[in-house]
Computed example of a mutant assay.
Amino acid sequence: MMNGNGKEVIQFYEKALNAEIISNKILGERCENSDYPIPAEAKDSVGFALLKLGDSNLMLSDSHPGQPHQVGNQVTICIRTENNEKTKQVFEALQDNGQVIMPLQKTPISPFYGIVTDKFGVMFQIYTDIQNKIE
């Protein structure tokens, strides 16, 4: 999670890590049908980017409006599941003695998506993959 400098980060990683940009959606494009209006000043922020680094994927976005940026939370573990039941199971297991940051809900990128910090302070994004691929 970046603090409004996601575009700069993408350009830096593309050059420094020889990363291939697979996807780069701005927040205004990615969430335009959301039930939560995006403030005008945030619409040009990175909503979701996927970079390919060898055999690994790096996903990043700018912090969404209303979610404070906190140093130390820039890196999160993403868990992608194949169905909503598995997403719910993993989310509920991780929230035990942890903190729900964003409850499981439908989003423009997934039918079931949530963010939770586990009891050890590790932040996770858990989501159901729509088509077993990321656009």
Rank of each mutant, 00 (worst) to 15 (best):
M2R: 11
M2L: 10
N3D: 12
G4Q: 04
G4M: 02
G6L: 03
K7V: 07
K7C: 04
E8R: 07
V9A: 15
I10F: 04
I10Y: 05
F12R: 10
Y13W: 04
E14R: 15
K15V: 10
A16W: 10
L17T: 09
L17R: 08
N18M: 09
A19T: 08
E20D: 11
I22R: 15
S23F: 04
K25M: 15
K25T: 15
I26L: 12
L27G: 00
G28N: 00
E29D: 12
E29C: 02
R30W: 13
E32D: 14
E32R: 14
N33W: 01
D35Q: 06
D35H: 02
Y36M: 09
P37F: 01
P37E: 08
P39T: 06
P39N: 05
E41S: 10
A42D: 11
K43N: 08
V46N: 04
L50G: 07
L51N: 00
L51S: 00
L51R: 03
K52L: 08
D55H: 04
D55T: 03
S56K: 14
M59L: 06
L60R: 00
L60V: 01
D62V: 05
H64K: 07
P65H: 03
G66N: 08
Q67I: 09
H69K: 09
H69F: 15
V71G: 05
Q74P: 02
V75E: 03
T76L: 07
I77T: 13
C78N: 11
I79S: 02
E82W: 14
E85N: 13
K86D: 12
K86M: 13
K88Y: 11
K88D: 13
A93N: 14
L94K: 13
Q95G: 10
Q95P: 08
N97C: 15
N97T: 13
N97P: 11
N97Q: 14
G98E: 01
Q99F: 07
V100S: 07
I101Q: 10
I101C: 07
I101M: 12
M102D: 02
P103Y: 03
L104Y: 05
K106P: 01
S110M: 02
P111F: 00
P111S: 06
G114R: 02
I115M: 07
T117I: 15
D118T: 10
D118W: 05
D118K: 14
K119D: 04
K119T: 01
G121Q: 02
V122P: 05
V122A: 11
V122N: 12
M123T: 15
F124L: 07
F124K: 09
I126Y: 03
I126L: 06
Y127K: 13
Y127N: 13
T128K: 11
D129F: 01
I130V: 12
Q131R: 06
Q131D: 10
Q131M: 08
Q131P: 04
N132C: 00
K133D: 07
I134R: 04
